[in-house]
């Protein structure tokens, strides 16, 4: 073993070693360059972002004490009464929380249905018209990029305060994101079933129904569920601009310094999102499990 290793001539060994070291040096320089670029960018961004570390250090006690202040006063002796005091408006908040969840649900449903209808026309492997495809993809991009709060603000002006504006705003955003994801899922399918249906004389609708749909249905459902969960989370801020849901109360509580209300509502949102997270994850795992069998 050793002899075979030593059998490499000294000159060759030296050349190899030199090559290795050159390579290592080159990579070092590369990482240094990346770090230097990053540092320059940080400096520029710091100027634009008005980073003021001294201010942060001075006021960080505000941050920690804020969490101290929003903590409810709970004592062992009067635990029940204290909790009741903390959640004095539990029925009202629960109703608003249900509002938020239902707004997210309706918006996800509308957005997913619209995205479902359009995605097959936007996928490069199914749709024939290049021009139509380009247009739909740009529409998706527009709906995805314009922030949903901007839509919400405009809809509140147009449709009045209330959940309708929230539903529409989140639905448009969902349409944009799901449209992109659905299109990508369709573009990644196995084309053989599609060709099979096509060769037996199937038209576009039949090709989609029997060739493409069985392959993508489960991933569509899991994307939609994931989006639902995200929408519950972002639906909780829609209320800040008057688009319905629990965000309104949270916003008022933060702005008017009703400290314990803030923690009560936040805790409710976190628990609700966590439950959503667990439930949708279960369903998504089951869906993807089915996918593997197929």
């Amino acid at each position: 073993m050793t002899s075979s290793m030593l059998s490499v001539p000294q000159a060759r060994l030296q050349a190899l070693l030199a090559g290795y070291q050159r390579e290592v040096r080159r990579r070092r320089w590369q990482s240094l360059l990346v770090l230097a670029i990053l540092a320059i960018l940080v400096a520029i961004a710091g100027r634009f972002g008005e980073v003021d570390l001294a201010n942060l250090v001075d006021n960080i006690s505000n941050f920690t004490s804020y969490f101290g202040r929003i903590m409810p006063r709970l004592t062992v002796a009067h635990f029940g009464a204290n909790v009741a005091d903390w959640y004095w408006n539990i029925t009202g908040w629960l109703k608003l929380l249900l509002d938020t969840v239902l707004i997210a649900y309706l918006a996800t449903l509308i957005g997913a249905c619209a995205a479902f209808a359009m995605a097959f026309l936007a996928a490069a492997n199914l749709a024939s018209s290049r021009w139509l495809r380009w247009c739909i993809k740009r529409v998706f991009e527009f709906c995805r990029t314009v922030p949903d709060l901007v839509f919400a603000l405009m809809f509140v002006s147009a449709f009045g305060l209330g959940p309708l504006a929230g539903v529409l705003a989140i639905a448009i955003h969902t349409f944009g994101t799901l449209g992109k994801l659905f299109t990508e899922a369709i573009e990644n399918i196995d084309m053989k079933p599609v060709e099979g249906v096509h060769s037996t004389g199937g038209r576009f609708i039949e090709t989609v129904r029997f060739g493409a749909l069985p392959q993508v249905m489960s991933s569509f459902a899991s994307y939609a569920l994931l989006r639902f969960e995200i929408n519950v989370r972002s639906g909780s801020v829609g209320g800040m601009v008057g688009a319905g849901g629990i965000g309104q109360d949270l916003f008022v509580a933060i702005r008017k310094f009703y400290y314990t209300d803030v923690s009560a509502i936040l805790l409710m949102i976190i628990v609700c999102v966590a439950i959503m997270d667990l439930v949708t994850e279960r369903i998504r795992h089951r869906l993807s499990g089915q996918d593997k069998v197929r």
Binding site: E50, L56, I60, F63, Y66, L149, L250, F251, I269
Partner: peptide
């Protein structure tokens, strides 16, 4: 999980209270 459950906009509201109005609150 807890940090993730709170939307960035709510964190922004909290940090506006800590470091004042401006982009620094947004960064945080």
């Amino acid at each position: 999980d807890t940090i993730r459950g709170i939307d960035a906009l709510i964190w922004a509201l909290v940090f506006v209270g800590v470091v004042g109005l401006g982009p620094f609150a947004g960064i945080l």
